[in-house]
């Protein structure tokens, strides 16, 4: 499964504004719920919160991957949010976060889903990739960047 398979440009929100961790998760849930086969925004929001309770999904360097296992989700769906102003996300390095890749995963998650998560972490872990994503002008550009996989060692 590729990252582009789970994204679409209408689930990429660029330069929006939210005030807190909670409102960010609400916004993410809203985007994720737009897809066919998705659970309700409420349900997704709750699963995202549940995962955050275990420990922040912030990776450091201003990026985070909020994700949740959702009971009535039939397929895995992703969304990207880039904030105009970064917010406090309890990240391990205490840096405020502005780049988010949110995931809604079916309750019965598989190793393929897990690999997606690891892939996103890999992409976001690359400082060049982060810069590109921060500079991208539109949702389409972000999608294009994600589509061209970085060269793997």
């Amino acid at each position: 499964m590729q990252l582009t398979d789970i994204l679409s440009s209408d689930r990429i929100a660029v330069d929006i504004a939210v005030s807190s961790k909670k409102s960010l998760l609400e916004k993410a849930a809203e985007l994720l719920a737009q897809s066919a086969g998705s659970a309700s925004a409420r349900e997704i929001f709750e699963s995202l919160c549940q995962r955050e309770r275990l420990g922040s999904t912030g990776l450091g360097h201003g990026v985070a991957i909020p994700h949740g296992r959702v009971a009535s989700q039939t397929e895995v769906i992703g969304a990207i949010i880039r904030l105009r102003r970064s917010i406090e996300f309890d990240a391990p390095d205490h840096v405020a976060v502005d780049l988010f890749f949110a995931l809604a995963v079916p309750e019965q998650c598989t190793d393929a889903h897990l690999r997606l998560l690891a892939d996103i972490a890999e992409q976001f872990g690359d400082s060049g990739r982060r810069d590109e994503l921060r500079q991208a002008g539109s949702a389409q550009e972000v999608l294009k960047l994600i589509a061209e996989q970085p060269v793997r060692p």
């Binding site: 699963s47 309770r53 994700h67 190793d111 897990l114 998560l117 690891a118």
Partner: peptide, 13 residues
Amino acid sequence: AAMVSGIQAGSLP
């Protein structure tokens, strides 16, 4: 709620 729950150890990335 963690992604690894229910996954086989051998297929963890």
